[in-house]
């Protein structure tokens, strides 16, 4: 696989498991950070002309052959109607908080196209799209899945650089800042490791001029970050053993963790139920393996384990089927 740029590497981490069809709050947070990553990449690669602390960029610089499609998508949003920009790095980065929905969609598209071409990203159907209510309403749900090997190499090498002693590279420093600003640093470091990360950031601010310049900058919007964190914590709670039990009784609490698949027959037996689940999953293009058959089969769908528990939904007439419940051991 072709080696990706810094901003593309961050995007591989940021876009993984994001809804690809809708501009969710969580995705907005990541897209702003992807735009910031593009500015930082240009800064690292000396793409700006400098005059003291000021970084200068002209409209005509966008025509340079080194400027790729995603650079253009981000940079043209910064210019608005100006011909030349002359600002310090923090001001450039702050601009990403003002990007409109339309601009964010353009940024997403530019990155998604390039990453898909590089086999670093693919669009897969979201499991929630198999739910009876989504199927009957004709709602198509899709999400991004990053190349798992690349994703693992990127996140693990960042962990190594951060948790080891010795100097950190500029890319790792900026990646750490971007993860902090996108509110997902907790996804990659354990609670114990986060203490070391905090120490490391403190050390870096004393030893690295780049860290000293970047870490005081905040580009997140408090409301967006609050909503993102609330939804994430709700999902995390409902993924525990007791949480999934509660969610099974009250699926409305966390719809994405409780998918109802209807069976063709009322009071279907275990073989008929499994056949209908397989048919639905196949029709929506999921990759699955049946690990255990029986009354409550265990199925691995898109690398996650689910139990298919017989269930019924009451509309005007009762509908029989199964509810896919995330298997707690898969966590």
């Amino acid at each position: 696989m072709k080696e990706l740029s810094f901003a593309q590497n961050f995007s591989v981490i940021a876009l993984n498991a994001q809804d690809s069809l809708h501009l969710t709050t969580a995705k907005k947070v990541f897209l702003r950070c992807m735009a910031a990553a593009t500015i930082l990449e240009l800064y690292l690669d000396n793409g700006f002309k400098t005059e003291g602390d000021f970084l200068i960029l002209n409209q005509e610089d966008l025509n340079s052959p080194e400027i790729s499609r995603y650079h253009k998508a981000v940079l043209k949003t910064l210019f608005s109607k100006k011909e030349t920009l002359s600002e310090q790095l923090p001001q450039y980065l702050k601009k990403v908080t003002k990007l409109s929905k339309k601009m964010l969609k353009e940024v997403e598209h530019a990155f998604a196209v390039a990453l898909t071409e590089a086999n670093a990203l693919e669009e897969i159907p979201a499991l929630l799209g198999c739910d009876l209510e989504y199927v009957t309403a004709g709602i198509s749900m899709k999400e991004y899945r990053s190349n798992s090997e690349l994703f693992s190499r990127l996140t693990e090498s960042l962990r190594a650089e951060t948790l080891e002693t010795g100097p950190m590279t500029d890319e790792a420093i900026l990646m750490l800042w971007l993860l902090r600003e996108s509110g997902c640093i907790h996804d990659f470091f354990s609670r114990e490791e986060l203490k070391r990360v905090a120490e490391r950031i403190f050390e870096l601010q004393g030893s690295s001029s780049l860290a000293k310049q970047v870490f005081p900058i905040t580009i997140h919007k408090t409301i967006e970050m609050g909503i993102k964190n609330f939804l994430k914590s709700k999902k995390d709670v409902m993924s525990t053993a007791s949480g999934s039990g509660i969610n099974f009784v009250f699926p409305v609490i966390e719809r994405s963790q409780s998918v109802f698949i209807d069976t063709e027959k009322v009071f279907a037996n275990k073989e008929e139920r499994l056949r209908d689940i397989k048919a639905r999953l196949e029709s929506k293009g999921h990759i699955f393996t049946v690990i255990r058959e029986g009354e409550v089969p265990l199925i691995k769908i898109d690398n996650v384990l689910y139990e298919a528990v017989p269930s019924a939904k009451l509309y005007r007439i009762p509908v029989h089927g199964v509810r896919l419940r995330k298997y707690p051991l898969s966590l």
Partner: peptide
Amino acid sequence: VSIGELVR
């Protein structure tokens, strides 16, 4: 190589 590079 460093351990980070070894991971890569």
